[in-house]
């Protein structure tokens, strides 16, 4: 009996280690910057907040862009900076840029209520609101990381119940095995679909532009206007152009790189 207890505690401690490992890597951790650097950044950030509250949006944005550049150089990110940049651009009526920064902020914090609200609002204002039904709401409820962790947990639990059922086949074990299997399949399907979506490079049209049939300024070119704040799939790039795909219209074309920003941290 003692031996069994010891074995089960060993297994559970191993599971905990694996889960902990995943959580640590997935959640991210705070970064130790030099105290002077942190205080300088805080000072600049507070300045930008003050300027924003005074209505000096472009000045606030310039400071935030400076902070963001400094953070990126150190491979660091801040939801606050990206979110505030989105707000500044929104106030300057640059909806494309605003959406781009909100999307970046969402990559860092999927469930941030402010980011989600503003992203929804900018999509609504720029007529880029996608129709959402209950299924898509459920599907997009979790972030990709959360789906991965969920999948791993259900995966572990399902196979654990399978292992347990090789020794003890009781009704309770069988019931839990079904529950964990359903959860496992749900998370697996969601994760595979979302992962495939994630493999695609998505971009935001930051400035109104034309979608052209050729990646250069030539004659015999066909083009259609592309409004700002639209989400597009970036397929490839050539010189100063991106090849993009519009999923809604199911068309491909080229746009100048300056007018599209890829949503990637």
């Amino acid at each position: 009996m003692n031996y069994k207890k010891c074995k089960s505690s060993k297994i559970s401690s191993r599971v905990l280690i694996v889960v902990g490992f995943i959580l640590i890597y997935s959640v991210g951790y705070s970064v130790d910057l030099q105290p002077t650097e942190i205080s300088n950044l805080k000072l600049l950030f507070n300045q930008s907040v003050e300027l924003y509250s005074k209505g000096e949006y472009s000045a606030a944005r310039e400071i935030l862009e400076k902070i963001n550049t400094q953070l990126i150089q150190n491979q660091l990110y801040c939801v606050g900076v990206l979110y505030n940049l989105g707000n500044c651009y929104f106030r300057e009526n640059k909806l494309g840029w605003a959406r781009y920064y909100y999307e970046l902020a969402k990559l860092l914090d999927y469930h941030d209520a402010d980011v989600n609200h503003n992203l929804y609002f900018v999509k609504k204002v720029s007529n880029n609101l996608e129709m959402e039904n209950v299924l898509t709401k459920i599907f997009y409820f979790f972030s990709l990381k959360e789906l991965y962790i969920g999948l791993l947990l259900f995966n572990i639990m399902f196979f654990l119940t399978l292992i347990v059922s090789t020794f003890y086949t009781t009704v309770v074990v069988r019931r839990w095995r079904i529950i964990f299997f359903v959860g496992f399949v749900f998370f697996l399907i969601c994760f595979i679909i979302r992962y495939n979506q994630n493999l695609q490079k998505t971009g935001i049209v930051v400035e109104p532009t034309n979608l052209t049939s050729e990646p250069r300024e030539i004659l015999n070119i066909k083009s259609i206007p592309l409004s700002e704040a639209r989400k597009v799939v970036v397929l490839t790039q050539k010189d100063d152009y991106y090849a993009i795909y519009l999923p809604k219209e199911k068309i491909q074309g080229w746009v100048k790189k300056d007018s599209v920003r890829i949503v990637k941290l």
Binding site: G28, F45, Q75, L76
Partner: peptide
Amino acid sequence: IRYIKTNLNIVKH
């Protein structure tokens, strides 16, 4: 839109 954030919480992705 909602108001700007006032906390600088830096993380490594």
